[in-house]
Nucleic acid binder design. Sequence first.
DNA 1: GTGAAAGCGCTAACAT
DNA 2: ATGTTAGCGCTTTCAC
Lengths: 360, 360
Amino acid sequence: MPAVSSILPLNPAAPASAADVALAAGVSVATVSRVLNGIPGKASAATVERVRRIAADLAYRPGRAGGALRQGRSRLVAVLAPNLANPAMAAIAASIEVALRAQQQVMVLCDTHEDPAIQDEMLLEMRAQRVHATIMLGAVASPQLARLCAAGERILFVNRAGPQAAALGFVGIDNRAAGRAVAELLLTRDMPVWGVICASPGSSAVRARVAGLRARLHEAGRTLPPDRIIERADADHALAGQLGIARLLAEGVAPRGALFCTSDLVAYGAARALRETTLADLAIVGFDDNPLNDLLAPWLSSVRIPYAEFGPAIARALAGSDAVGSDVLLDFRLVLRGRLAVPSASKAGLCPDPQRGEPL
Amino acid sequence: MPAVSSILPLNPAAPASAADVALAAGVSVATVSRVLNGIPGKASAATVERVRRIAADLAYRPGRAGGALRQGRSRLVAVLAPNLANPAMAAIAASIEVALRAQQQVMVLCDTHEDPAIQDEMLLEMRAQRVHATIMLGAVASPQLARLCAAGERILFVNRAGPQAAALGFVGIDNRAAGRAVAELLLTRDMPVWGVICASPGSSAVRARVAGLRARLHEAGRTLPPDRIIERADADHALAGQLGIARLLAEGVAPRGALFCTSDLVAYGAARALRETTLADLAIVGFDDNPLNDLLAPWLSSVRIPYAEFGPAIARALAGSDAVGSDVLLDFRLVLRGRLAVPSASKAGLCPDPQRGEPL
DNA sequence: GTGAAAGCGCTAACAT
DNA sequence: ATGTTAGCGCTTTCAC
């Protein structure tokens, strides 16, 4: 039995371990660990140099399972989103992923589908993964969420506020102020609000947006009648928009002035329904400001939520765990585009409507 | 020193461990593990019952670090996408996430930004995480990718083929056939191809799409001149579309017939540029068929890639690791919508263009 | 059918 | 400056 075989790894394809590096460098695994983790003043320059070189030669990278087990924490950060099909969620997730990577962390992304049971299951699984933190990108109320928040788990709320103060606070925009800002604009232009379509009405963010709008209108003496506000709980926001328009039209008020939608997706659905069913000349205002709007929806004004800034803000909130529960409010911005004009001529077929498209 | 304290967990907030369950149930940790992993015929019905109940009471869920360390594999599945801002990528990711969850696995999502260096870094990190598999949603050629494939790592290619045969094979559509199908349609309608705009030209999928189109046209004696094919390497596909149109127009051929774009995003950019700069009456064909097309781009026909089916197909490929390298080709479908008609009247301001939007 | 014990790879406390 | 050692929580022989 040749002693050499104990030196070479049995399976050359298997990743090197700290022990392999230690053996090759003639030091202990502890030294390898210290050097590679950059603990200062704990190794001679020569040792550092040698260990670094050999680690590189062996393409060594510490297995994360060992570290996670030892430290009780993995480098995973969970992101629980209610609907990944929504481009806004994808945009935030993309921004978070970049920011986390800069901190040597890895994003786990889950879709709760706005379902409390699924969300609870995921919260428990992420706890079993000993994630470094859990980011609720639009939480829905659920038993485990309340329990874990109360137990002081590292949970951060984004966009929608949590059930109570969370350990890691909140990152988002001031939705109430955004609603007020839209009202302000419409008052300035003397545009009445024809209707409001509100999807995911359970969300604190959505409620704040509508509340802000109503409050400012009320202050100006233009109180919005409740029957002009349609609430739809459909998971598919675009569908909510289409159905919302049907409801608004059913009340017999001709579309005129402005339509307030609580997300861009709602606005897309609403515009689609308007084009199909009626003449209209409406300013439509959405929320999110999907980057595709400039290309595909020049008739949509929108409250731009600075999704690219979410990642860095969230990463900062996770890193600076000293300040507990500090809320970060990012700046929004009204992006004004055109009105949606569904011309009568288009109905009559006199004038081609490129939005609708000529038959192939 | 009260003996009781050794029974109660020191920190009630800390998750229960298998030892806690074993203690409470009066069995060994081995039994707990066996019962909860459902190893058959290894525990009496009474024991199973008791362990199950106590585990539930304590809200016990096995910490994943321990298991991963022991088994050399985590329950993580990595998804490396080139661009999460692309709704098509987000759609696939969403579908994968659901399918993985059904298999008790967890998705780690990363954005390579089409950068080989970033992709390599991520591949190594995922190996350190001992991921169960790595899914390359649009791989770019890179040294580690080639090395790991050769070493037999569990890598699955989606959409774009890998550098060589991968351990887990390929899932996607037959892009060449899709290109041919588009050509077939255009031939049937006797529509000449005005131009081709091709983003991410390094991608095997993109090349196959264009090759299929050209091959079928060539067979029909309508060979496509190379100067009508614009290749743009911009990471932002919409931008590629806009710039591609500029190049096509610069050659002085009036837009007429059909425009072939290798992704919907390219088509969005192209349409935008066409509306701004010229009269046009074009059939535009894209790839992906973003769900928003029905709402926002009724002038865009597209090859619908069945993204919802990707997740299940991928999950199957991961589970049935027996069949090595088996390729799964999913069915695509041509979705026909209208033409893009930029009317002369609209330029003259006689007829409102709802796509462009009236000023607010 | 069940328990005891080894060991996965890592880090941190303690020795030297 | 470096080595020794313990132990994180789990699964899996092996022995009974």
